[in-house]
Design a protein around this nucleic acid. Structure first.
Lengths: 233, 233
DNA sequence: CATACAAATCTGGTTAACCAATTACAGAAT
DNA sequence: ATTCTGTAATTGGTTAACCAGATTTGTATG
């Protein structure tokens, strides 16, 4: 287990090393948007790493929109200038693992917005999905069973109904980590689950009646205890 | 170009097919959190695709925290129940490419918050970085040059200063696409750049004097035209 | 000298062989 | 019967060979 962590850290450091060397190369060669980088093979030789390592680093920079690989042709600097490139790579290199507080803070921000937008934009089909998730949640809680998953699915149904695919994606990204931490720290207890039924229902009704302010307000109340918990760690 | 798009779509469809088959398998076999999936080789044979295809699908599900691969051991269902797993996979399969409006809407949401948080939490070093970015931006604009990159770097400096790594990551993710679209649609013109200097300075001062409400307010004003533009497409 | 064209080279992507660590299991020792 | 142990099979990860298409280069032709 310890070993696993070590090797993982090592490969991460290696990738960061390669990314920073690619950045240096772009600066030294004064490459501009659209210019071609040396081939993966050349880079791997120059940096004395395997081609796989180079590919992974390139793919990461591609994920952040800084490079663009074209099959059978080459890897190119994206349509972003050198200045922005340098700034963003610096940020990417220094990015740290998200802590629980960051996750919760971001979740609350996103969900107050998705609730509001869902009230404005939800379709009848969205409403149906939300109702299903709400019923599943209610049933579980009334049976005294753990309902963390159903809770989450209700919130994801709202994210889906908000009509903003970016926010929907972000909710999907943070959700698993939220669940894991919830279970680790036992955030929710029994009374809260009972209380959650009413709160969920109120949120659902606000979205159904297309009342954005009320939806946001009810979501805020729903997050009240979570908010306090988050700031008392 | 057309061909490229077609093949990319095909591989995406293939991946979605594999992901849904993995989901079906988990349901049929009643796999629970911690249970082991069949090996990659077996899956590739069962689904009649290459092992690489299976690996990519698994890695995507790993990115969303639904699976966990352990070297020389196997791939395991993450600590999330079947219900949540099914719901999330359905969402992942239906995720669509983000449109410009979604991006801008999300950016505004994030930046109103990062400005506020930065005013509360910025360190002296954060302040220094922001000042550098602000000066670089000002100089470019006064020289009549394009300053989209410097503009962006100032905003990223705020995101960094907000002390929330999740929001910082999200800002980095949407930034390149925002830039690309800005340049495509020519969102910013000359006067706006001039006006931008004052607005940036006001945001900076609000964060410097640790006035969260003012910081948010100034950021809101800064996004005023962007907001209108976004809703007039 | 310019241009057309074909062969050779170079490209990112893919595949199959390989690796080291883990796991499963048979059989021996207690 | 139980525990230990050594071997063989299995695992995800890695590497090197291979692929098809793009690009360059060299040559012949007008």
């Amino acid at each position: 287990m310890k070993l696993d962590t070590v090797t993982k850290t090592e490969t991460l450091d290696l990738q960061k090393m390669i990314i920073s060397k690619i950045r240096d190369l772009i600066n030294i060669k004064n490459l501009e948007p659209g210019d071609k980088l040396p081939s993966e093979r050349m880079l791997s030789e120059k940096f004395e790493v395997t081609r796989s390592n180079v590919r992974e680093a390139i793919q990461k920079l591609e994920f952040y929109g800084l490079l663009k690989s074209i099959p059978q042709s080459g890897t190119f600097v994206a349509n972003i200038g050198v200045t922005a490139m340098n700034g963003m790579i610096e940020d990417i290199l220094r990015l740290e693992e998200p802590d629980f507080k960051s996750l919760v803070e971001t979740r609350i921000l996103l969900e107050l917005k998705t609730a509001r937008l869902a009230a404005l934009r939800r379709t009848e089909q969205d409403l149906l999905k939300m109702k299903e998730a709400l019923d599943a949640y209610t049933e579980k809680v009334l049976n005294g069973e753990d309902a963390v998953q159903e809770d989450l699915l209700f919130h994801l149904a709202i994210a889906k109904a908000c009509g903003n695919s970016t926010m929907n994606t972000f909710m999907l990204i943070i959700t698993p980590e939220i669940i894991t931490n919830f279970e680790k720290y036992h955030v929710c207890d029994e009374n809260q689950a009972q209380k959650g039924i009413q709160e969920h229902t109120e949120i659902y009704e606000a979205i159904k009646t297309q009342n954005p302010q009320l939806a946001k307000q009810k979501m805020k109340e729903h997050f009240k205890m979570l908010y306090q918990y988050c700031y008392n760690i």
